[in-house]
Computed example of a mutant assay.
Amino acid sequence: MSKPFDMELFLAGVLTGSHATRQRHLRQAKIIQAEIAERWQLQTPWAWQKKHVAWFLEHSLNQRSDSTRYYYFLTVRLLARRLQKTWCFNH
């Protein structure tokens, strides 16, 4: 039996800002994780590649407002920093 992935623990080292900002990043990271897990069965960010995150940004957010996409982009930057990746995305 394996434990579910703890996104809060995963991002703990890179989360900064107010309580509301940290909660928003956690909520959005969990949404990103759920969408990627549903599409590719990759349960943890350690298994993600740039193409998975790019897919999320392009397909899951294409009907969202510019501000929503920007906030998700900020969350993706935190995830990339935590994974020590140099991913760059156009927003």
Score class of each variant (00 low, 15 high):
E38I: 06
L42Q: 12
F5I: 01
Q43V: 06
E58D: 13
K3D: 03
L57T: 11
S65Y: 03
L9W: 14
F73L: 05
K85A: 08
R39M: 14
M1D: 15
L9K: 12
T75A: 06
V14M: 04
A12P: 10
K85C: 12
L79K: 02
Q41G: 15
W55Q: 00
H59V: 13
N90V: 15
K85P: 09
Q41L: 15
S67I: 15
F73Q: 00
W40I: 13
L74K: 02
H19M: 10
L9R: 12
D66A: 10
L57K: 04
T86E: 13
S60C: 14
H59Y: 15
V14H: 02
T21V: 06
S18G: 03
A37L: 12
A37R: 05
Q43P: 07
H52I: 13
E38A: 11
P4N: 05
K85T: 15
S60T: 02
G17R: 00
D6R: 02
R81E: 09
E35T: 00
R39L: 14
R64A: 15
C88R: 02
R39W: 15
Y70F: 10
Q28K: 01
L9S: 13
F73H: 03
M7N: 01
A34V: 06
R69H: 14
T44K: 05
F10Y: 05
E38P: 07
K3W: 11
W40F: 15
R69D: 08
Y70M: 05
L83Y: 00
R81W: 07
K30W: 09
W55P: 01
V76H: 03
W40Q: 11
S18D: 11
L57N: 04
Q63L: 15
P45Q: 01
I31L: 08
L83C: 07
A34G: 08
A47K: 06
N90P: 10
K3H: 09
V76M: 07
A20G: 11
W87C: 00
Q49P: 02
F73C: 00
A29V: 03
Q28S: 03
R64L: 12
T75P: 05
W46K: 00
Q63F: 15
H59M: 13
A12H: 03
A20H: 11
V53W: 07
P4H: 05
S18A: 06
T68E: 05
L57E: 10
E38G: 09
A54H: 06
L83H: 01
L11C: 06
C88I: 10
A29H: 04
F73D: 01
N62C: 13
S65F: 07
A47W: 09
S67F: 12
F73K: 00
P45T: 01
G13N: 04
Q28G: 00
S18I: 06
I36E: 08
I32M: 02
D6V: 01
E58T: 14
L11R: 04
V53T: 09
L42P: 10
Y71Q: 04
A20M: 08
W48Y: 14
T68P: 07
Y72P: 04
G17V: 02
R64K: 12
S2Y: 05
V76Y: 09
I31E: 01
L15M: 00
Q41T: 13
H52V: 11
F56N: 04
R82M: 09
C88F: 12
E8D: 10
R77D: 10
F5N: 01
I32P: 00
A47V: 14
R39Q: 12
H59D: 12
S67K: 01
F56D: 04
R82H: 04
R27A: 13
D66M: 03
R77K: 09
R27G: 07
